[in-house]
């Protein structure tokens, strides 16, 4: 019964909430009001936007020494998670059989282990820093903690089910994934997508003022 629920209706429900929710949130942002800037532009807004979307991946050297922990742990977590999400063998197989109908070469087992260690280590450090640093503790909201813990639990259940011998462990992983998918559009996890418009808007603003950012 539970197996049917998790593999069937709940999975489709969470998938629907996720995709409709994300699209709705993005549309709400992109179709919100905005005023046209009446000042005469000095540079190109669109090239500024494009440049800023990519340039923000690398921190300015003036500030880098002060934010080393966030940058290193941040990259470890995000790259590790990205690799796990799209290149873990069970994920590739799952996507091929259930969603896409085609697959790609997954990463070898050792790479999976290394990627997940990066992701766990990075997320653990980021979350602990959030709790321990007085700035992040002051500005953090409940949402930030829920999102971090939920992501951690999803990764953990996935790794615990690595032996693929037990339906219960697989279902536990899938269930937490479904919770994450449902929570996603209404949380700060939306930054997965909204960092792009956010960087682009600011980049456009810099671009038309001719600022080298």
């Amino acid at each position: 019964m539970i197996e049917y629920l998790i593999d069937g209706p709940l999975w489709y429900f969470s998938l629907a909430v996720f995709s409709v929710g994300v699209l709705w949130q993005l549309a709400r942002i992109l179709f919100s009001a905005s005023k046209t800037d009446l000042s005469v532009a000095r540079g190109s807004a669109s090239s500024g936007a494009l440049r800023n979307v990519f340039s923000r991946f690398i921190p300015h050297h003036e500030i880098a020494p002060r934010i080393r922990v966030q940058v290193i742990a941040g990259y470890m977590f995000h790259l590790g998670l990205f690799a796990l999400l799209f290149f873990a063998a069970p994920h590739v197989l799952f996507l091929e059989q259930n969603l896409l109908g085609f697959g790609w070469t997954p990463m070898p087992h050792w790479a999976f282990i290394v990627a997940s260690q990066f992701a766990f280590f990075g997320l653990l450090i980021l979350w602990l820093r959030r709790m321990l640093n007085s700035v992040s503790r002051l500005i953090s909201t409940l949402d930030d903690h829920v999102a971090a813990i939920l992501t951690f639990v999803v990764m953990l259940t996935g790794c615990l089910a690595l032996l693929k011998g037990f339906t219960e462990l697989r279902l536990l992983h899938r269930f937490t994934v479904e919770l994450l998918l449902i929570y996603f559009p209404f949380s700060c996890l939306m930054h997965t997508f909204t960092f792009i418009p956010s960087r682009a808007f600011t980049g456009a603003w810099f671009g038309r003022r001719g600022i080298d950012a």
Partner: peptide, 22 residues
């Protein structure tokens, strides 16, 4: 138990190297 042991074994092996780094 076998379920717990399977999960523990995978988790234990995965987190071990993180312990060394910490």
């Amino acid at each position: 138990f076998s379920l717990l042991a399977s999960a523990s074994k995978e988790g234990h092996n995965l987190f071990g190297p993180i312990f060394l780094v910490s």
